[in-house]
Design a protein around this nucleic acid. Structure first.
Length: 562
RNA sequence: GGGCGUGUGGCCUAGUCUGGAUAUGGCGACAGCCUCCUAAGCUGUAGAACGGGGGUUCGAAUCCCCCUACGCCCGCCA
């Protein structure tokens, strides 16, 4: 709690409560910047105290005791302004203390399992599916900054009908009967079996019987069948994780759905649910009921269904972490609610929180692995890389070819991550190439470019900065103060993102932070400054720490030149 | 039919949970800024009363009701 805005907000709330000796939530908001840093509208006090909002604003202004700033009434509002000197001092100090982990909070010593991606492992990731890992990974980084011990986990749906069709294909189809893979990558080679199996299934319905035999064998726990499923899943997953790694996303662990069948924990949870008063049976099939909505856990023949297996998985997770978060497509909303209700009904805590996101369409149509209609993540990454390279070559001729490749990758990949994360999850995205590859305006390259600019200044400076020798009281111009203030807001933004699971807010803030620097850059010479060179250099150094920390949190690389 | 979500300038988008002081930013358009730390930048102009209607309130993009368009869901699939 030692970031300046944390302290100031706390001081204002306590101060107002003390003025009126009230124990209520103080409404505090962030006004337009000319008015101040915080504002309290006094309308709510009006009824309680039987005074006009104007009067109350006056009383607060005249009686509140503040160390970090000042109060000024403005009609029915009290506006609070943080003290410039405190702001500069604290912010610069914190930047130098935390460096590029500015914004971090101390470890909470709490374990969290964040489940993301968990896509059926039957083919390469396409752009639609990529929204999940990008949201998941960004939130994982935010929670880590906030002090959680985060485990990023992929729940591998390695059993079920789709995987059975996949298995049938890998048994019955010869490689020589398949088209060339679109890429020499294992997930692309494997998806051909899945796609061909699906199209053969449509033409020859009798294959259905063979698929059913495979499903039965799987459900009976047949080792050989399960191993085949798992083997197919593992191969595809190898390709998928390679793609994700390129997006700067790594998973910490994988948990196979089949494990819960094999080790008997699904049976255990079914037994437990059987005794639950919210559960009932229909023709021998067990169901959970809430609000007249039934979710079946087993079939009439006693074999278990996905909800039961997911329940076993969540019980397993709950035993291992104090906080759970799942990133799921909006089609899983109902299932998410079922999970929560069912877990609560048997007193399993913690129950997971969810982020549901809308689908990404491609030119207005849904992407489908089965039908082969999609833009793969790999294709998008390659195209982004090439586009970035073209942009670099347009303006720089002093980079080595290695540097060009490295920066093209950093910029291209960043553009993809950012363009997806900047949109509120519940909003649908219609994927368009020009938009995905746009490098100007509200984009990652804009933010990265800003970082490179700040690095450029630091690199050119010839003096050794000794913070103790720098007179920070010289940092006082509006453009300088605005920059500092925006920097100081970062910890607050992280809190908001964590409290509401709204990763797009982080992206919006990043744009603001970058834009602020570019304005500063235009108006305030640093190296050529006559009397403020060291002070501004220190400011730029502090700034670059904040931006670096923010880029890290967004999973974006921070090129020092581009 | 029911449930959930979304609808903000030509296009994309923030703000909606916790109602407040002139509705955020970008793309595109138009007009400007590189003898000066990277113009992937910056400045300015035009452009929206926030899907429609009603209500609550001193005050509504934000809360409530109705309607409408679109998406998702409503399997002994996963």
């Amino acid at each position: 709690m030692d970031y300046i805005f944390d302290k100031f907000e706390d001081e204002i709330k306590k101060g107002v409560r003390r003025v009126f000796d009230l124990d209520i939530d103080i409404p505090i908001e962030i006004p337009d910047e000319e008015r101040g840093d915080y504002a309290i509208p006094c309308f709510v006090f009006s009824k309680l105290l039987k005074k006009s909002p104007h009067e109350i604003a006056e009383i607060i202004t005249n009686n509140i005791e503040l160390e970090l700033g000042s109060a000024q009434s403005s009609g029915p509002y009290v506006n609070f302004k943080i003290d410039d000197r405190e702001l500069v001092k604290n912010t610069i100090e914190k930047c130098l203390e935390y460096e590029d982990s500015f914004g971090s909070y101390p470890s909470k010593d709490e374990k969290m399992i964040l489940e993301h991606t968990s896509a059926n492992p039957n083919g390469p990731l396409h752009v639609g599916r990529a929204r999940n890992p990008i949201i998941g990974d960004t939130l994982a980084r935010v929670y880590e900054k906030m002090g959680y011990d985060v485990e990023r986990q992929y729940f591998v749906n390695d059993i079920g009908r789709q995987m059975a069709i996949f298995a049938w294909g890998s048994i019955n189809i010869e490689e020589r009967d398949l088209p060339e893979p679109e890429r020499n990558k294992i997930d692309y080679r494997m998806v051909r079996y899945y796609q061909k199996a699906n199209s053969q299934l449509e033409e020859e319905p009798k294959i259905e019987d063979e698929v059913r035999d495979i499903i039965h064998a799987m459900e009976k726990g047949d080792k050989q069948t399960l191993n085949l499923f798992k083997d197919n899943a593992d191969k595809v997953l190898k390709g998928v994780t390679d793609s994700l790694k390129r997006l700067n996303i790594t998973l910490d662990s994988f948990k196979n759905e089949s494990d819960f069948v094999v080790d008997g924990s699904v049976d255990d949870i079914v037994d437990q649910m059987d005794k639950n008063k919210r559960c009932g049976k229909e023709d021998g099939a067990l169901f959970f009921e809430k609000d007249e909505k039934r979710t079946f856990l087993t079939r009439a023949d006693g074999t278990n269904l996905y909800p039961a297996r997911d329940l076993a998985y969540h019980k397993w997770k709950a035993e291992r972490a104090g906080r759970l978060l799942n990133i799921l497509g909006e089609d899983h909303k109902l299932h998410g609610h079922f999970l929560k209700d069912a877990l609560e009904s048997i007193d399993i805590t913690p129950v997971p929180d969810f982020v549901f996101y809308s689908f990404v369409s491609f030119e207005g149509e849904e992407m489908s692995t089965r039908k082969g209609k999609y833009v793969t993540l790999d294709d998008l990454m390659d195209t982004a890389h090439n586009k970035a390279k073209k942009e670099i070559l347009k303006r720089r001729d002093d980079f080595s070819s290695d540097e060009i490749e490295r920066i093209s990758e950093q910029v291209g990949i960043g553009a993809i991550r950012f363009n997806i994360i900047k949109i509120q999850p519940e909003k649908p995205i219609d994927f368009r190439w020009e938009e995905a590859l746009n490098f100007r305006g509200d984009t990652a390259p804009f933010i990265q470019y800003t970082y490179a600019r700040s690095c450029g200044i630091l690199e050119r400076s010839d003096i050794d900065l000794d913070p103790d020798q720098v007179d920070m009281s010289k940092i006082d111009e509006p453009g300088e103060m605005k920059l500092i203030k925006t920097m100081a807001k970062f910890p607050h933004i992280l809190k908001t993102v964590r409290d509401n699971n709204v990763p797009h807010r982080l992206a919006k803030y990043a744009l603001e932070l970058a834009s602020e620097f570019n304005q500063f850059y235009r108006d305030h010479p640093v190296i050529q400054s006559k009397n403020k060179k060291t002070e501004r250099l220190l400011l730029v150094k502090a700034y670059s720490y904040v931006l670096k920390s923010l880029l890290d949190t967004l999973g974006l690389e921070a090129p020092e030149s581009m």
